[in-house]
Design a protein around this nucleic acid. Sequence first.
DNA 1: ACCTGAACACCGTTCAAGT
DNA 2: ACCTGAACACCGTTCAAGT
Lengths: 193, 193
Amino acid sequence: MPAVAKTSDEEILAAARRIVDKHGADALSMQALGDEVGVRAPSLYKRFPHRDAILDGVLAGVLVELTSALRRAQRGRSTERDLVRLAGTYRAFAHRRPHLYALLFAHRPTGPAITAAREAAVAPLFSTLRTWLPDAQVLDAARSLVAFLHGFITMELDGAFRLGGSVDRAYRFGVRAWISAIRTAAKRDTIER
Amino acid sequence: MPAVAKTSDEEILAAARRIVDKHGADALSMQALGDEVGVRAPSLYKRFPHRDAILDGVLAGVLVELTSALRRAQRGRSTERDLVRLAGTYRAFAHRRPHLYALLFAHRPTGPAITAAREAAVAPLFSTLRTWLPDAQVLDAARSLVAFLHGFITMELDGAFRLGGSVDRAYRFGVRAWISAIRTAAKRDTIER
DNA sequence: ACCTGAACACCGTTCAAGT
DNA sequence: ACCTGAACACCGTTCAAGT
């Protein structure tokens, strides 16, 4: 009964993150992961119940990282500039780590641990929007911005914009369009009060 | 050398579409497809070079169907109403056939045959936008609307809107925000000319 | 307590053999 | 000309056997 541990939860998650970051979630096979940490594939099941639980762990780390980047983007001087910065930070993260970004939506988490981390990630956007809009509209506005960003980023990373022109310009067009609509909604509401 | 054909390209594609529609692209295994058309899996390779080519065929059919739905939505009376109808038709298609809709973006086509079908699908949106906007802005506007719609639909079908409230209201908020921004851009441009 | 090889039920795909 | 079983290299996962 020597039982010398050759690896650890942390090492496995770090290796898994490295593989997903470099080659995408599809490349994360239990065999490849075992090779990376010096253990046979079945040994991984002593520490994680299944492959999806490992992806949960990677996703949790990605959410923490994204959340702190978004918090740093939020400076509080001007609502409008914070919105532009939040959107830009989100998009920049996706550009820097496309495979990890894909995990945010592609991977359906196993446990409820991810839920809180997801809410933390959207908190900066919500608090910025609350400086402009009444609570009733914050949710709608946040959903439509995240939808635009997620759709745009997914499409550009997939190479879905094939008709030429500047993709960056289309992005700025979209963000500005959304912000001007929000500004209008905020003013309209102020008048109505 | 009797060589009695037990199936055909058309029957295979129809069966593949049925499987993807009901259970998603992941459920389309060569074995399941073979069972559906009364043939062993290896026989399918006499008609299609690989599984992805079969998904290409399914996708082509989906694009034709989506295109004709979008054309019907475009009535030409009012630009604004056509935009609302085009967006609504697109979303309704995704709601009615979520697994087939997912194919539009999840499946990377093998051949170039899909490219033309994709362009046909966005043509109605482009022609409607051209009644409002100068050519230079049509591309940006189309990209930002499709990005919003695709992102929103992906998120709602994935169950990503977990914070309560009305998802339909958020959708209408987003579409109206985008249209009002476009209207502003169109007016600004008219003045500048 | 941890690691291992062997095994199971699945994939997509290839190919020689049948008719 | 088309269909087949057998095989290959992969999956995720289970489990009895080793230390």
